[in-house]
Amino acid sequence: MNDSNETVTAPMLSVKSLSVAFKSSHGLLTVVNDVSFDVPRNSVMALVGESGSGKSVTALGVAGLVPYVGGVVTGGEVLFDGSDLLKMRASEVNAIRGRDIGFIFQDPMSSLNPAFKVGEQIAEVVRRHRKVTRKQAWARAVEMLDRVGIASAATRANEYPHLFSGGMRQRVMIALALACDPALLIADEPTTALDVTVQARVLEILKDLQSINGMSVLFITHDLGVVADIADDVTVLYAAEVVEQASVRELFASPSHPYSAALLDTMPQVALATGKPVASIPGIVAQAHAWPDGCRFNPRCAHSVDGPCTTDAIELQSVGTGLSRCVRAHELREQLSKSGLQGGKSS
């Protein structure tokens, strides 16, 4: 009894100290370094970062797809429902992928096979993972298309992807990913290539299906606005490392890392709402072959001090209910909480 109780409360996905490296002309480059986070059951964890932060590679790591893109997992565990995906045989992982873990990628244009009908592509996944007849699988495909808001789904299921617009293709991808009622959905920038009105619609659909199915979602994005809309918890990545982890309310109300605070301030919506000029982060994102000494964000940080920030690598520490990789997190707390919309309103 005790045992079964534990599996229910344990997180759906638990990533522990995941590290991923790629071979390059600069040697072995670690692009995901000691990344840990949990995705609790029936909740949405957002993984936030800019290009080069390692967020997409983390998703590939979770999915066990790193070897397919030429990388090496150099350490860590990916516990899905308690068992380590990285230690499983390929056939075991293949059975889980698509059935218990669904995927949506950024580019809906290249994620669907142009040579097969949309309905067939969804039905194929259902038949692969469930003991159903062709007819039942097809009915499931039509049902899923209907649930993601494709009008006259029964007819559209017979059409090929080129007849669908970008927003519709992304909804087809959602239908495909959710066709087997996965316990975990990994969505890698699913709305980045879409227009804002279409993005709003896709997010509504995702939120509805998430709450109906009670699934867990790992949502990868660079857009903090989207995070405010969909996430329960947030992990902020910078230069291959976790720099902050917090609940969505805490992150937006009082960020505990200067990078998260600066990201909030760069949003045009914040500048417009607060009347402050649009802030920018000086310099460019750190590169994998030349991580700065000390804190990896220090060359761009407004609060960096010589010595503590520039010599030794910084460890994650508890701040409030979350984690921050900033040595000055406690002393900067009040200052950083003036960032973003919340800070604008209170001041």
């Binding site: 009105t197 709003a200 619609r201 509504e204 903090l224 606005g225 405010a228 809309d229 973003g340």
Partner: peptide
Amino acid sequence: SAIPVPDPELQRSRQRIVLS
């Protein structure tokens, strides 16, 4: 109203026009 407001409480409670 499609542009998300960077404030979780406000974003989830405000009135929006979502185009069908």
